[in-house]
Design a protein around this nucleic acid. Sequence first.
DNA 1: GACCCGATGCTAGCACCGCTAGACAAGCGA
DNA 2: TCGCTTGTCTAGCGGTGCTAGCATCGGGTC
Lengths: 192, 192
Amino acid sequence: MSVQERKERERADRERLILATAREIAEEQGWDAVTTRRLAERIEYSQPVLYSHFRGKREIIGAVALEGAAEMAAAVRAAASAADGPRARVTALARAYLDYAARNPAVYDAMFQLDGGLAFAQEDTPAPLKDAFAALLENLQEVAGDGVHPGLFTELFWASLHGLATLTRAGRLPPEYAEQRTEMLVDRLAVL
Amino acid sequence: MSVQERKERERADRERLILATAREIAEEQGWDAVTTRRLAERIEYSQPVLYSHFRGKREIIGAVALEGAAEMAAAVRAAASAADGPRARVTALARAYLDYAARNPAVYDAMFQLDGGLAFAQEDTPAPLKDAFAALLENLQEVAGDGVHPGLFTELFWASLHGLATLTRAGRLPPEYAEQRTEMLVDRLAVL
DNA sequence: GACCCGATGCTAGCACCGCTAGACAAGCGA
DNA sequence: TCGCTTGTCTAGCGGTGCTAGCATCGGGTC
């Protein structure tokens, strides 16, 4: 039996290696550079090996996206729990979100810009995605305002953060005033 | 001289045909389906003809994006000028923006999701893009609030709209509450 | 009106992409 | 040690964006 266990362990290791390498190439040179040939060469296996782990490139992107969602949820929770008072919590949350997006652009792309074949806002949405939304909801519901549906408010706040993240990253917004925009967002959207 | 003029006219016509066809295929089947072969076949010319008009596929996307920016600017101005009072103007602007994005998803993708090789937030930003931002600024500066830089406020408002547009389109936000989110956005962000 | 020549669009092909069929070898259980 | 399963590789398919070089068409000149 231990032979089989060893094989499963090695297989899991290789799967992690594939994801880590895909992420590495994507952060270095963008997702366009993550070709199955290049990825296979970097992990020192042939192309078809990738397809014994994932259905195709899309599923690799999706797997990286799930990793990212988990990381982002953790980052948001850590930042919010280290802050005192509703205002500080919301500001910390917003900064943590934008900071994660800025520091991990390729992962953020996998989550929201590219097609990873993931379901959203549905029953079969993967747990990490639901949990990332939950991390926002936990810290935003206290500033949603009276009589406002917390989920709806969280969606709006999230959309604004997402807009700031993507437009900034694409060079559509001058980066030097990012902090002012974040503060204005918190000031206006949150009911403090 | 008239011969040369005729040729130039025919050439301009064909360029318009290329863009209209690219846009058509993109709206029908997405930008991935806009291959140079398919596009060439639809306009009944061979592939290399495309390259006598545009440097490559990226430049075609960029040209469609500029068309879209002009259309969106017009839509926003029309909606805002038909409304009475600051609040109605801002609401009309937001609805017009989101409506344009929803009705022309491929064009919106060309503008913001894909790489059209365009410069943004810089001196050499193409006029239509600057003008589209100006259309937002014109109607938003009156609700930016005292002592708030109108440009910065417009950037934030735009980012929020962009976030709503992209997340809704990607199925990340349930579409049934779109109107409530829009109203909440206007209520919270605009100083009325 | 005939001819030359340049502009213009075509055929064919490059290197690369995601993905897969089928050959082959390694390593297990008997 | 043998047979077989399991897993990996080589090779290749149809597609992509893009381009070199040829052929042809048509305007300008004599």
